[in-house]
Design a protein around this nucleic acid. Structure first.
Length: 572
DNA sequence: GCCGTTTTCGGCCCGACTGTTTTCAGTCG
């Protein structure tokens, strides 16, 4: 992804933050935030754009286009530098403390000279906030707690952790007699790769017992806020869970609203305003008469706004509104579309389940074909040998007789060495039905070397799928650095699929790169990379990531019938 | 600062909760 876009977007975000601290015009601040999102999500590298090209980006006008040019020429934006000189970076950092926003941060800086989180903590403990206007004892307490939470590296959690909490809450609340409907919303419903807060929505005419059941849940270690309509708790691990209770007739509008994203909601509400309507979590209303128009289902809400229903995975204001208005929304791939899985492991290498159990699990998923792809010898710790691999192939062939409706493919997951070569010679490789090739080491090559490495792997006629292409580990290891456009061009040209790995800490390719790669005509394989029977369930996260990348069934080779897949694997 | 088949000026999404405040500002999503 164009690094310049991300850097420019970050500078615009910083500009917005600094202006909000210095009390800048709120609409101007919003304009910068909006432009930052647009730049970050823009498909073209902004460093190659001139003034007119920049202005063609939605939400970027003349002033911001010039600021971006300032960045591409000098590496920074002059106004940002000027504001940095006035507002120390530590003051902006204060706003990262929950419950402490720009206004309070500025007061703390101007009145007490506080310009870092550490200084703030010391000031509170020294009693220096006493008597400061707007800062009562509760505020002090909340700030201290906020600092503690932040230091406890309370970060966004992985999808599976959030889904586990959400599933539990929804299950318990759904069983209450007062609850008519209950579901999770928020970034989890949108399948963002990490989740900051879990949002749960319930429809009920009698909210009080619902709120009480919620705060009484064993996972609710602490009640953060509680009201008639909204209650928030925090789990022992620090994950916040918000419950909103709405009247049943508001369900659709509420689900739409609480699913977000915020940027998407702003767009839908703008469309409402322009149509003389008002959209809130309670429904779509006539702005004049306040008369309720629709609210029961999301479909009705979108329809009345002149839009088709938009899949939650697309709701990021990165072009889905425009596509919807033009009737050009993609028909997104779903779990039901998947006929096969092309990446899995057994206890022959680092999997924990037997070949028989993994195949049985694939069969239980209703798959039509399933590839076993254990690790290859160059990942030395896996102790793979030619003999072991050939013996496994024989066992797969035997097992096939027991599964007439599940085609078993014998494959392997090769290691892409630093030069782009892989395990085994072409002759041995030709014995596999499918070869996934992945980076498992030497993550720090420079961009040119990494690009050459991936390109050479794609050019190998025996390599069908590049496994977890960026090799990132969310929260632990950054993606490798490569010229992804170059890699995508090569993958498309050579007929090499890129994997969407469903592991919650991988989700690799990430959605933004998927969307970009698709523009080059790249094909994808949405796989579990399962190392155990339970890992098969992770497929929903891979599918969610593919959906966030706007993939259709035709983009995904393992939705294809087996004969079409086999033709693709010939790479001719 | 952006944007416009009603506009080049005057709008810009909307509501809940908290805390400190006697009527509302700040924060959050």
């Amino acid at each position: 992804m164009a690094r310049a876009n991300e850097e420019a977007a970050e500078l615009l975000r910083e500009l917005a933050d600094l202006l909000s601290i210095t009390g800048g015009d709120a609409f101007k601040i919003r304009a910068y935030e909006k432009a930052a999102r647009a730049v970050a999500g823009h498909p073209d590298d902004i460093s190659g754009l001139d003034l007119a090209g920049l202005r063609a980006i939605p939400a970027v006008g003349d002033a911001i286009a010039r600021k971006i040019l300032d960045y591409t020429r000098t590496g920074t934006i002059r106004q940002v530098e000027e504001l940095r000189a006035r507002i120390p970076a530590g003051v902006r950092a204060l706003t990262a403390i929950p419950t402490l926003g720009p206004k309070k941060a500025l007061v703390l800086y101007e009145e007490l000279g506080v310009s870092s989180v550490d200084e703030l903590e010391a000031a509170i403990r020294a009693g220096r906030l006493r008597g400061l206007k707007g800062f009562g004892p509760k505020t002090e307490e909340n700030i201290l707690r906020g600092i503690e939470l932040m230091r406890g590296s309370r970060e966004r959690v992985l999808l599976d952790a959030a889904a586990g909490v959400a599933d539990e809450v929804v299950e318990v609340l759904s069983a209450l007699p007062q609850v008519e409907r209950c579901a999770h919303a928020g970034s989890l419903r949108r399948m963002r790769e990490t989740v900051g807060d879990v949002d749960v929505l319930a429809a009920s005419r009698d909210p009080r017992p619902v709120m009480e059941a919620f705060t009484a849940l064993p996972l609710a270690a602490e009640v953060v806020a509680s009201g008639e309509k909204k209650t928030s708790v925090r789990t022992a691990k620090g994950l916040q869970v918000d419950l909103r209770v709405v009247p049943p007739e508001s369900w659709g509008a509420a689900l739409q609203y609480f699913t977000g994203s915020q940027a998407h909601n702003i767009r839908t509400r703008e469309i409402a305003v322009k149509a003389g309507l008002r959209l809130s979590e309670y429904g779509l209303f006539d702005a004049e008469s306040d008369e309720l128009i629709v609210s029961e289902t999301e479909e009705e809400v979108y329809e009345r706004l002149g839009l088709p229903w938009i899949h939650p995975a697309l709701r990021e204001d990165t072009g889905e509104i425009e596509a919807a208005l033009k009737g050009e929304l993609p028909r997104l791939v779903t779990e039901d579309d998947l006929r096969g899985d092309l990446h899995s492991h057994t206890d022959l290498t680092d999997g924990v389940a037997s070949l028989e159990d993994m195949v049985a699990a694939a069969h239980a998923r209703g798959l039509e074909y399933y590839a076993i792809t254990d690790h290859a010898p160059n990942l030395v710790m896996q102790r793979m040998t030619d003999e072991k691999m050939l013996a496994q192939r024989a066992r797969v062939a035997e097992l096939q007789a027991r599964y007439p409706d599940l085609a078993l493919l014998h494959g392997t997951e090769l290691n892409i060495d630093p030069d782009g070569g892989v395990d085994w010679d072409a002759d041995f490789l030709s014995g596999f039905d499918v070869c996934v090739a992945s980076i498992h080491s030497h993550f720090n090559l420079d961009r040119d070397a990494m690009t050459r490495r991936l390109v050479r792997a794609c050019e190998n006629p025996r390599v069908h799928v590049i496994g977890h292409p960026t090799a990132r580990s969310i929260g632990r290891r950054p993606p490798v650095d490569a010229d992804w456009d170059e890699v995508f061009r090569c993958a498309a040209r050579t007929g090499t699929a890129l994997e969407v790995d469903s592991f919650p800490d991988r989700l690799d390719l990430p959605a933004d790169l998927i969307r970009r790669a698709r523009r080059f005509g790249v094909k994808f394989a949405v796989d579990t990379d399962a190392h155990s029977v339970g890992h098969h369930r992770n497929i929903r996260y891979g599918v969610g990531t593919a959906q966030r990348g706007w993939l259709t069934p035709d983009d995904v080779i393992n939705t294809w019938p087996l004969d079409r897949l086999r033709a693709f694997l010939r790479k001719s």
